[in-house]
């Protein structure tokens, strides 16, 4: 029996989803649904369901747009953030949430990611980061670690990887965070913060791909991969309470950057208003 959450926010006709057994993407999709549900029922920050638009690109992650029961648009590979930019500009009232993958948003769509971050356009970008191109069968992505194996890196990956959350921070994102599929509650809270954030917000959510990335690199099954996340991604409070030695090789799970740069559509509204005032004077 599907849970209430599934009944409320998923398109049951289109389930079950296409993801492999053990894939982390379903967890992230659920996190997004829970985050939205909690915000809809949040008395202080209530958001309207009809104002939510889910935008996705191409890849395993991007199928989530079809399963979530909101306004949804499944676009072309790498271009979700660019489509989303037009939607947000056209109607700034909308909560535009981009569901994308590591290849989708940091390889083919990398340029759109950094420029949307630079503009501080009020989008919420949730990167389903599984370190591999899953839909096409296991090629290395910009987040595949150096020396790891993929079908296009049979001798080990020569590339050095991106850290998507840091990439967004470097590009000027006013909110950037890292989540995963093990720390569910923490990640839901990060997604909620990202949706409520006025400017450009990105959550780089570490997924797991036992089928391709895991198998190729002897990372064990899904449970083993989740254990790795449990041990190596450290939530904020604990991260800052442990010694630097203990942090060695581990990553912060939480908010990496936060500031209140002016949001793009707000700034553009000022341009329109200035034109209106000028016309009135004439």
């Amino acid at each position: 029996m599907p849970s209430d959450l599934v009944h409320l926010y998923m398109r049951i006709d289109h389930l079950p989803q296409i993801w492999c057994p053990g894939c982390g993407n379903g967890v992230i999709m659920r996190d997004v649904a829970v985050a939205i549900d909690e915000l809809i029922h949040d008395e202080e920050n209530s958001i309207n369901r009809e104002d939510i638009v889910i935008v996705s690109g191409i890849g395993c992650s991007s199928r989530a747009a079809g399963y979530l029961d909101f306004n949804s648009i499944h676009t072309t590979h790498g271009r979700a953030i660019a489509f989303a930019s037009g939607i947000k500009m056209a109607n700034p009232r909308l909560h535009v949430i981009v569901l994308t993958g590591d290849g989708d948003c940091s390889a083919i769509g990398g340029n759109h990611l950094i420029h949307a971050a630079r503009r501080n356009l009020g989008l919420t970008v949730i990167a389903f980061n599984n370190n591999i191109y899953g839909m096409t069968g296991g090629q290395y992505s910009p987040t595949t670690p150096h020396d790891d194996k993929a079908t296009t890196a049979p001798y080990g990956n020569v590339d050095r990887p991106f850290d998507i959350a840091n990439l967004a921070t470097g590009a000027g994102a006013s909110f950037s965070a890292r989540g995963d599929v093990y720390h569910v509650r923490e990640t839901i809270d990060l997604i909620k913060q990202a949706i409520l954030h006025k400017g450009f917000a990105l959550v780089d959510v570490y997924s797991v791909c036992p089928t391709y990335y895991g198998r190729k690199n002897k990372k064990g099954d899904a449970v083993d991969m989740l254990k790795w996340q449990k041990e190596n991604l450290i939530p904020t409070a604990r991260y800052y309470s442990i010694s630097e030695n203990e942090r060695e090789g581990k990553k912060l799970l939480g908010v990496l950057s936060f500031n209140d740069y002016p949001e793009y559509t707000d700034e553009y509204a000022k341009v329109i208003e200035a034109c209106r005032q000028k016309a009135k004077k004439k």
Binding site: V55, I73, T75, T76, R79, G86, M89, N111, I272
Partner: peptide, 21 residues
């Protein structure tokens, strides 16, 4: 509204998004 995008690919993508909205 006008926006100068980072390339032509994103320009037409933004146009399609705005039209959908």
């Amino acid at each position: 509204k006008f926006i100068q995008m980072e390339d032509e690919i994103s320009s037409i993508a933004a146009v399609l998004g705005a039209s959908a909205a």
